[in-house]
């Protein structure tokens, strides 16, 4: 809006610049949309065409075979992934909702406390403590985190023994449960920053007025601050939602049992099966894996995987549409991303 002055827009130089920027933006949009287009287009192709070289831009014989197969996984697909797809979908929902229910209250309240309840030096120290978790890349803490899920609260492969005895300390094993995904996501430093930035912008006098009115600190947070903070909650819930829904590495590390694996793992397992089978063309695939060849015979190949990918992306997309207005407001407030 403010990129260009309102007055003098008709000047030739500004006009050229205007169209150059429009063109660049269109190019950006195009580049972002191309993969989606390929996904959608491929999902409507028959199995053989999906693996054709060179690939076709539009399906020559559009078919819903891929979609049907993805929804009705046959016995041969079952040998690749042990549960019905709906089970993985439900697992993903459980993890995402659980993470949201735990993380958003914890993160928002800690940010509120840091912004409005603590004063002076202690507020600063706590802020750095919370923000410090951003300084280490997640990959560095992957192994300690994994060990923690094995022998909570010790980040060790084997729990230490109680000094002077042979008995090990009692530990909790959350590895290979939903908790292994949900608990570590209970606090999000990125969302903490967003919350803190927003709460800092709320004048202290409003909080003080509510205190004078007799509201307890929690009641003030719930009845006064929360309704004022809908945009920032929308932004953080969206980030948390998409982050958990799309997470792959951490569930891969801590979830072994396929009955509780999320959708990302299932899709990946199928993709792997096809990739190992060398699905660059149908012939090789047929030769190398009986299971995969069965699937291909039923018309499932990359077209089905694209369907899975789309199914995987749809919830995030729908969620984005729901919170879009607040997201944009949040972007305006925070200047984020």
């Amino acid at each position: 809006m403010s990129l260009f002055p309102v007055v003098g827009r008709k000047q030739p130089r500004l006009r050229v610049a205007w169209w150059v920027i429009v063109a660049l933006l269109c190019l950006g949009i195009f580049m972002h949309l191309i993969p989606f287009f390929i996904m959608i287009s491929t999902s409507f192709k028959p199995a053989s065409e999906a693996m054709a070289m060179p690939p076709t831009l539009f399906p020559r014989e559009p078919t819903l075979a891929g979609w049907e197969l993805a929804f009705n996984m046959t016995a041969s697909a079952r040998s690749l992934i042990s549960q019905p797809l709906s089970q993985y979908f439900i697992n993903s929902v459980i993890m995402t909702v659980g993470t949201l229910l735990l993380s958003i209250p914890i993160t928002s309240m800690s940010a509120y406390a840091c912004s409005k309840l603590l004063k002076g030096r202690s507020a600063r120290y706590w802020f750095f403590f919370f923000i410090g978790t951003l300084m280490l890349p997640g990959i560095v803490t992957l192994i300690p985190s994994y060990l923690l899920t094995r022998n909570f609260p010790f980040p060790l492969p084997v729990a230490p023994t109680i000094p002077g005895t042979e008995t090990p300390f009692p530990t909790i094993r959350i590895w290979n449960t939903f908790w292994a995904v949900i608990l570590p996501a209970g606090f999000s430093a990125g969302n903490f920053l967003l919350f803190k930035g927003f709460f800092d912008s709320i004048p202290d006098s409003i909080i003080n007025a509510a205190r004078v009115d007799g509201g307890s600190e929690f009641n003030i947070f719930r009845r006064i601050v929360l309704p004022m903070s809908v945009p920032v909650f929308a932004v953080t819930i969206y980030f948390q939602f998409s982050g958990t829904w799309e997470s792959y590495l951490w569930p891969l590390v801590v979830i072994q049992d396929s009955s509780i694996a999320p959708l990302t793992l299932a899709v990946r397992r199928l993709v792997d099966a096809f990739t190992y089978a060398g699905t660059t063309n149908a012939q090789t695939a047929l030769g190398q894996s009986a299971n995969v060849s069965n699937l291909v015979n039923q018309g499932l190949s990359w077209n089905g995987l694209m369907v899975l990918g789309l199914l995987q992306a749809i919830p995030v997309f729908l969620f984005f549409i729901v919170v879009r207005e607040y997201l944009l407001k949040g972007v305006r407030i925070q200047g984020l991303k």
């Binding site: 004048p203 006098s205 007025a209 509510a210 205190r211 004078v212």
Partner: peptide, 16 residues
């Protein structure tokens, strides 16, 4: 503050 039974008016009004 909550239990003191006071009323307070602020420079920026501090309305909710």
């Amino acid at each position: 503050t909550q239990e003191r039974g006071i009323g307070m008016i602020f420079q920026d009004y501090a309305l909710y």
